[in-house]
Amino acid sequence: MVFILGVNFPERNLVKKSLESFFGVGNLSSTRLLARFHIHPTCKVGELANKQVLDITAALSDMKIENDLRRQYLDNIKRLKETGTYRGRRHALGLPVRGQRTRTQTKTANKLNRMERRV
């Protein structure tokens, strides 16, 4: 088991996949991180050198990921609501925000646009 940014990953997991398990790290950022520290894409977590683990952790802690990113996400929606914009209202009403029709098929908006949005 290897600790990366406080999360324990089993050694057989791919490094790329493990990085992508963080909220806010996708294919692009994980590819960049791997390239930055010279880790090949098929590398397993167990094969990482100690220094590489520390480097990755340091790089991840500089990035806006996980709860910070979630908070920013919610703050953006909250700001829209508080300034009373149309988009904010639509968020609050649980309706599509970007001009989609509401006669049918608003499942996603119903699911996601709540007063307190879950991220």
């Binding site: 010279h38 880790i39 090949h40 098929t42 590398c43 094969e47």
Partner: peptide
């Protein structure tokens, strides 16, 4: 095929792996 580990050769020539 990027299936084996790589690293820069040295600090003097970082573009050789």
């Amino acid at each position: 095929t990027a299936s084996t580990a790589y690293a820069p050769l040295s600090d003097e020539n970082p573009n050789v792996y």
